[in-house]
Design a protein around this nucleic acid. Structure first.
Length: 584
DNA sequence: GCCGTTTTCGGCCCGACTGTTTTCAGTCG
């Protein structure tokens, strides 16, 4: 899958063109890059099958970009882009990340002061050389210094699992403060928007929206910027404020009047690409769409704005859930009333990947079962590590059998059904870490890779395919092996893995651990086209982890999954049938 | 550079905030 690679190439070219103040081309390149990123099909396959004609069919890709992509796929580079590279400062990509520094200012800095890297910029600021430039000033210099500091502190995105609790906490506190300050604000309308509401795996900053009449807006803003966790106030106006929390997270708050609340919620939820498409539809219908509402262009009369639903309706679209708003085809589907009916967390009847203190879990078997039953689940699978996982205290066969005995005993005390399982290592040659006579006694077998991450793509693919052909394996767990922000996914040919999973009827896990979220949304979408079924599991290492399910469900929804696609929405008897059939 | 049931040429999302400006450019989302 080289889509990401091709998209990066185009994004990079767009940045340089933007730096050169070339008009419109950067936008065209970025649009093409974005479509390629979200294609759901390997661009190499398209090119191999249909040549340039196939590439031109991709929205945003015309003859010229198709030529560039073809050249890149065949030779590994694009002559024209190679020449472009020399035209911008070497540190341009990094400098563009600094808040307040765009293409124009960067060019000015390069042309007048010869600034080409972040360290050049830092030196120039320290020597107060910026404030003398035309269009710059003392304040700009100070702000850039602060922005650099902020960039160096946390320029990476925040994991969903970290951002969501922070947002919940801030909103809780903000509501309490607002309640003490004014009675005229509807507290239930204070919610998070942005990529967080879309449940994206990582978040740049947290966006919060509130509703208030004009006279009350500033009161909400004052509550917000004076929250105890706020470190810096970046900007403060009557509709928009930005702050940075002491632990480094950036938070924006927007306040809008009731007649615009839905439009603002829609707008700030994004994604940007989804919104641009929506606005284009509005224009074609003779409307104008902004964060304040949907208006008739001629008369300026508002025809929708207080709720998201009425905006989509007025544009001739079915309501699109936030998780789908990535311009991956959801707008076309909404126009045809063909959106998926997305899975809900309440559809889940059990958790199929849970550790106990038999291996690396913190809590006892009994505690995990108790908590799962308290969550209302119908079943839970106990899946401690297999014997090769020495670090995680993987179970020897004797210990596994002892666990079975305890499960049999506990089964009599609980309503919830307990499946005897194991998270079995897929060894380097693709065999599983327990012999067949043990595997066939288990109710459920997860296969996963915990060693030999650096295998070349071909061998890693063979290893996983071999495991998928093992009749005793049920589920491929955390299939890409990535740890968000820490470890890249291992090299593997997903087309082949998905083919093998589909051919053998194997299930693919969506691991809900905030540090994993594995498979990711794009690969879920891709896997679904192979007809594969999934399970959403927490990979819990303590009873508290059982609540991680919300993150996995979010990724499943982003991958367009419906209830029927996910086997742990099935009643116990149906789940057992699925698992039994796999071993026949 | 791309695109088109109002266009094959002339458009390309829209508005807020800030700073350096006396009316606007740059940046951001």
């Amino acid at each position: 899958m080289r889509n990401r690679e091709v998209a990066e190439l185009l994004y990079e070219a767009a940045d340089i063109l933007e730096y050169q103040q070339v008009e419109w081309k950067p936008r065209a390149y970025r649009r093409a890059a974005q479509m390629i990123e979200n294609l759901g099909e390997d661009i190499e396959n398209i090119y191999a099958r249909e040549g340039k004609a196939g590439l031109i069919k991709i929205p945003g890709v015309g003859k010229s970009i198709a030529d560039h992509i073809a050249e890149y796929l065949e030779t590994g580079k694009v002559e024209k882009f190679e020449k472009l590279k020399g035209k911008a400062p070497s540190g341009a990509a990094e400098l563009m990340e600094i808040r307040g520094l765009g293409a124009k200012k960067m060019k000015k800095l390069a042309d007048t002061l010869g600034i080409r890297t972040l360290s050049d910029l830092k030196n120039a600021i320290a020597a107060h050389r910026l404030r003398r430039l035309e269009g710059f000033g003392e304040k700009t210099e100070e702000n850039l210094a602060k922005a650099i500091e902020q960039y160096e502190k946390s320029h990476s995105r925040i994991a969903l699992g970290k951002a969501l609790p922070i947002a919940d906490e801030i909103i809780f506190t903000l509501k309490a403060r607002c309640k003490d300050t004014t009675s005229k604000v509807d507290l239930s309308k204070i919610i998070y928007t942005g990529s967080l509401r879309r449940l994206k795996e990582t978040i740049g900053d947290i966006d919060i929206l509130a509703e208030a009449e004009k006279g009350e807006a500033l009161k909400v803003m004052n509550c917000f910027v004076s929250l105890p966790d706020v470190d810096q106030v970046i900007l403060k106006g009557s509709t928009k404020s930005s702050v940075i929390l002491k632990e480094g997270t950036a938070i924006d708050l927007r306040v809008v009047p009731p007649e615009s609340y839905g439009a603002a919620l829609q707008y700030f939820t994004g994604s940007k690409e989804h919104n641009i498409e929506l606005r284009n539809i509005a224009i074609k219908k003779g409307y104008k769409l902004s964060e304040y509402g949907l208006y008739i262009k001629e008369s300026g009369k508002q025809i929708a704005g207080s709720s998201e639903e009425e905006i989509y309706k007025a544009l001739g679209l079915a309501y699109i859930p936030p998780e789908l708003r990535e311009n991956r085809g959801e707008i076309k589907a909404a126009a045809k009333n063909a959106l998926p009916k997305l899975i809900e967390q309440s559809d889940l009847r059990g958790d199929l990947h849970v550790h106990t203190n038999y291996s690396e879990g913190k809590d006892s078997l009994k505690t995990m079962i108790e908590r799962a039953e308290a969550l209302g689940y119908e079943y839970i699978a106990i899946t401690d590590h297999s014997r090769s996982q020495k670090i995680a205290r993987g179970l020897e066969i004797e210990k596994l059998k002892a666990q079975w005995k305890e499960i049999d005993k506990l089964s009599k005390c609980f309503r919830i059904k307990i499946l005897k399982g194991s998270e079995v290592d897929i060894l380097k040659d693709g065999t599983l870490d327990f012999p067949d006579e043990i595997l066939k006694e288990l109710d459920i077998v997860l296969g996963s890779i915990h060693s030999g991450f650096a295998l070349p793509e071909k061998e890693m693919t063979e290893r996983i395919v071999t495991a998928l052909e093992n009749r005793y394996l049920d589920i491929l767990a955390h299939p890409s092996g990535r740890l968000l922000g820490k470890r890249e996914p291992y090299a593997v040919n997903y087309e082949r893995v998905f083919e093998a999973a589909a051919a053998n009827g194997k299930l693919i896990e969506i691991n809900s651990q905030p540090s994993r979220l594995d498979l990711n949304d794009e690969l879920i979408l891709r896997a679904k086209t192979f007809g594969i079924k999934f399970c959403i599991s927490t990979d819990s290492h303590s009873a508290a982890d059982l609540t991680f399910m919300r993150y996995g469900v979010g990724q499943a929804r982003r991958g367009w999954l419906e209830k029927e696609d996910v086997v742990n929405t099935y009643p116990y008897t149906r789940l057992k049938e699925v698992l039994k059939k796999l071993k026949e």
